[in-house]
């Protein structure tokens, strides 16, 4: 995920205190100027919380699987998302199709974790 989990969790906690809690107060005041905005903020924050929870539960296993898959190609550089992606990027720049296949598999797993329908090509 673009947002590393610790950063996301920290941001969610801050948002809950500074934006969502005041937003929830406003939900009971439909005439308040920001009540509508507050509803959207609270709804989006709830979705982010669910994503963060899923990421905390399943992200480590997904990361371990990605590292295991890349180890035959990259060796120790497969361990850790940033090291792995830097190494895969270097391999990809030389036309290494195995590196691309690993990146696609990792992207597919990360997207599947969202629980959304798969992307549908527009053709």
């Amino acid at each position: 995920m673009s947002l590393p989990l610790p950063a996301l969790l920290n941001a969610v906690a801050t948002a809950l205190a500074n934006e969502v809690a005041p937003a929830l107060q406003l939900l009971g005041q439909p005439e308040a100027p920001d009540a509508n905005y507050a509803g959207g903020t609270a709804g989006t924050a709830a979705m982010i919380l669910m994503l963060a929870a899923a990421e905390a539960a399943h992200g480590p296993a997904r990361e371990a699987a990605a590292a295991d898959a890349a180890r035959p190609l990259l060796g120790e550089a497969a361990t850790g998302r940033d090291a792995r992606h830097a190494a895969l990027g270097a391999a990809l720049a030389t036309g290494n199709r195995a590196a691309l296949a690993l990146l696609i598999a990792e992207a597919e797993a990360a997207y599947a974790a969202l629980g959304l329908p798969p992307p549908v090509p527009v053709t």
């Binding site: 673009s2 590393p4 950063a7 903020t41 994503l51 992207a107 990360a110």
Partner: peptide, 28 residues
Amino acid sequence: IIDGRSHDPVLMFAGTIPYRFHTLTLAK
């Protein structure tokens, strides 16, 4: 979000769902 300039959940959403969507479609 990472730099603490915003705590807007909309930006968290953008940095998560559309990010993964485009990473996947672009890789393919």
